[in-house]
Design a protein around this nucleic acid. Structure first.
Lengths: 184, 184
DNA sequence: AAATTTATGTCAGCCATATTGACATATCTT
DNA sequence: AAGATATGTCAATATGGCTGACATAAATTT
């Protein structure tokens, strides 16, 4: 496997003593292998979409918005803010572009007329599908040689890497902790 | 497992016909589950370090530079540019800060005196260790319930997600394709 | 009915991180 | 000596974050 994973003793960053350090830092054992694999895997994973997005004059932010609006139709602006962890002002700029260019439409909420529920237009759906296609191809290739048990382990690992306290609406849907259904 | 993973037919983004679409887009089958898990897992994974970095007045860019300089001592500026996929100018600003504040030192290359080989100082090593500790803790927690075979599958998956054509110096070390050793 | 809270939008300005292009210097290679 | 390479730096620009303040409409509470 050629794992690059060895320990090395280093000084405490703040000279505050060991109480400020994590279990790993105290033991001197780090998962350099996974840390670096995650960096490179994510870099290349989002790189696929980045290339395509240039042709549309969009950036990563547009992709993230389009993705979640398509996947969770009727998402509120506030939900999107929770998921993306950005401010209203940052989202506003990107969302306005997507609305103006016809990738997303807003509908006034039925119960609460203050809400602007977000939906992807066919044009928006097509963009999401194109980008998700590229990413799915990479995932499919990566999973091709892995057993069903292995795929289950990968799923379990990725889920366990996610913070569970204070989950947003989308995470509740993914983890099935609430009663929300993801679509339809 | 509560996987949210279903297909749905969408229009072609560019109306260019099916030849422009990926296998996944043509089949209408997407790995929404993995796509979203990767998004959230990476968001929370880097979030750990982001919080710490604020206290140092640094950003994500500083972390990436520190990490690779520490892990691959004697890295050249050009190597770092390949790994981080940013421009010399962007790197320059961040690197200058890290040099000025004593997290990194430069040594002139022995064979080629044009080169500035980069090394982490003890102060720099301590910062890297602190951040890697947080991330290692998360990884350790996530791997805790997973069998050795499962961990191997996770490793294999992450490696397979990475582009192998035109690997940079660090990737050669990780994959062992060249004769380079990662440290010392 | 009035007051308060909530959901959203917007304005002005700031910061970090990225970009391109041009150019300078030192050093190595031919 | 000429050319290529490794690095550094200047100027200008773009994107995508941020904070704080404020406005509107609609829902909720008092």
């Amino acid at each position: 496997m050629a794992d690059i994973n060895f320990s090395r003793t280093v000084a405490d960053p703040d000279s505050k003593g060991p109480e400020a350090t994590s279990p790993a830092a105290r033991s001197g054992e780090f998962r350099w292998d996974i840390i670096e694999l995650l960096f490179f895997a994510y870099r290349d994973f989002v790189g696929d979409a980045d290339l395509e997005l240039e042709a549309f004059g969009f950036g990563r932010a547009h992709h993230r918005v389009m993705h979640f609006v398509y996947r969770y139709p009727g998402l509120k602006v506030a939900d999107l803010l929770d998921v993306l962890r950005i401010t209203k002002q940052s989202l506003g700029r990107v969302l306005k572009q997507l609305l103006d260019e016809g990738y997303i439409i807003q509908k006034t909420g039925n119960n609460d007329r203050r809400q602007r529920l977000l939906y992807a237009t066919p044009k928006g759906e097509a963009l999401v599908a194109k980008l998700a296609g590229l990413q799915t191809d990479r995932i499919t290739r990566a999973l091709a040689e892995i057993s069903p048990d292995g795929v289950a382990a990968i799923n379990q690992f990725l889920r366990a890497m996610i913070d569970r306290e204070d989950p947003d609406k989308v995470l509740e849907a993914i983890f099935g902790t609430g009663s929300k259904k993801p679509r339809e």
